[in-house]
Design a protein around this nucleic acid. Structure first.
Lengths: 203, 203
DNA sequence: ACTACTTTTAGTACTAGGTAATAAGAGGAG
DNA sequence: CTCCTCTTATTACCTAGTACTAAAAGTAGT
C-alpha cells in the first residue's frame, strides 16, 4: 500500500493541466515526482490533454514574446503611422486590445489614448530631439476594446524651439479625444526637408 | 608580425552575432548553411562569443516574457503604489527603464510620465468605474533613464460624478511633471470607506 | 474466482540540438 | 619547412522528449 493515496485519473489530469498552466517550465520528470506516477503516465496524460512537450511550450512562449518585441521597437510611435508630413500633419491608427482596456469595463485606459496622440504629436515634428512640454487634453467619449482609434495631428505653429500641435482622435466619425500639445525641440531654424526617412527614434 | 588582422573570422563572428540577434531561433545547422562553414566552426564561434545554444536562448526569452506577463496584471497601475488614501491622496513610484526612454537621448517619453500620473489619479478615486475626462498637464523637467519618479496625487474636489485630482511627479525634490485631472466616476454619493483593498482594476 | 476492461508501468528504438574533448588537416607568416 | 591559427572531423554523451509494444496492476461484473 502506498502511504500517499493516488488521485483518480480525471483529477490528476485536471491538476496536471493546471500545474503546467501555472508553470509551463515543468518537465515530465518533475511532473512525475509531483504526482507520484510513472513518467509514462505523465506522457499519456499530456497526450490525452493535447499538451505539447516542454520544449514546444517554451518555444511557443518565446515566439509570442518575440513577435511582440518585434512589433514595438520598429517604430517607437504608439500605433501605426498612416501618413506623415513632417512639420505639417500626421495620421496614426491604433487598435485597442485587451492590453489597453480595463479588464472589468473593457473601456480604454486614458493613458493609451494619450500615448497615441502624444507620440504622434512628437513624431510629426521634424527634429530628432522633440519632447512634450505641456498638453491640454479632453477625453470626450470613452473608447472600447476592439475599436480602431485614428489620431490626426496638425502642426499649428512652429518657432525656434517650440511647436504647437493639435491632435484629434476619432473612432469612426466620432471624436474621442482632443489635445493641444506644446512640443519642445532642438532646431533653431526650420529647414525645408525632403519627404524621406523620418526619425524613427521619437515619440 | 600580423599587420592585418585576419578579417574573415572576425567578420563572420560579428555577422553570426547579428544573425542570432535578428533571429534567435536559428539552429547551428542553419547557421552552418548560412555561413558555408562546418558546424564545428559555428559552435566554436558561439563558444567564443558566449552565445548559448538555441534551446537556452529560447528558454531565456520565454522566461523573460513569462516574468513580464506575471508582473504586469498584478496591479494595473503604472508604477508601484506606495500609499493610498482613497478619495484623498496617493503616492506611486515608477522607475524609468530602457523601455520608457528614447533610445537615442535616454530621456523619458512623455506618455509614460503621464501614464503614471493618470493611473494614480484614477486609482485614488474610490470607485471601480473611473475615467479620465480631461487633464491639463505640464512637463517641467525631462526625466532620464534610471530615475525614480514619485507621483503624488491629491483629490481637490469630489462631487456626484466628477473629481478633480492634482498630481505632481518628483525626481528627488525636483518637480518633473504637474497635472490637473478631471476624473469621471460612477458613484452618485460619496460613501465613507474603510482603508481596505482598493480596486486593482483601474488606472 | 474468473474474465474483461481500464489504467499504469516498463522497455526499446529513435529524434533534435546540442556539449565536451580530442585529433587531424589547411593555409599563411617568418 | 616549421610554427601557429583556423577549421573540420570524429566520437561519446546529454536532455527531454516521441512512438510503439508489451506486460502488470487495479477494478467491475457475473
Amino acid at each position: 500500500m502506498l502511504v500517499i493515496e493516488r488521485l483518480p485519473k480525471r483529477t490528476r489530469q485536471q491538476q496536471l493541466l493546471q500545474a503546467i498552466e501555472d508553470n509551463p517550465f515543468l518537465t515530465d520528470e518533475e511532473l512525475m515526482r509531483k504526482f507520484q506516477v510513472s513518467i509514462q503516465t505523465v506522457r499519456l496524460d499530456r497526450l490525452e490533454l493535447g499538451i505539447p512537450e516542454l520544449r514546444e511550450r517554451i518555444k511557443h512562449m518565446a515566439e509570442r514574446s518575440y513577435d511582440q518585441v518585434r512589433s514595438l521597437p520598429i517604430d517607437e510611435v504608439i500605433g501605426e503611422i498612416i501618413d506623415l508630413q513632417l512639420d505639417k500633419s500626421g495620421i496614426s491608427m491604433f487598435e485597442l486590445t485587451e492590453d489597453h482596456v480595463f479588464s472589468r469595463t473593457k473601456i480604454a485606459r486614458g493613458h493609451h489614448i494619450f500615448a497615441q496622440a502624444n507620440s504622434l504629436a512628437v513624431a510629426v515634428i521634424n527634429d530628432p530631439i522633440a519632447l512634450t512640454a505641456s498638453a491640454d487634453i479632453r477625453f470626450i467619449r470613452s473608447a472600447m476594446l476592439g475599436e480602431k482609434c485614428i489620431a490626426k495631428a496638425y502642426v499649428k505653429s512652429l518657432s525656434k524651439g517650440k511647436a504647437k500641435v493639435d491632435v484629434q482622435t476619432f473612432i469612426g466619425d466620432e471624436v474621442v479625444f482632443e489635445g493641444s500639445f506644446v512640443i519642445f525641440h532642438s532646431k533653431k531654424e526650420q529647414l525645408r526637408t525632403e519627404g524621406g526617412q523620418a526619425n524613427a527614434d521619437r515619440n
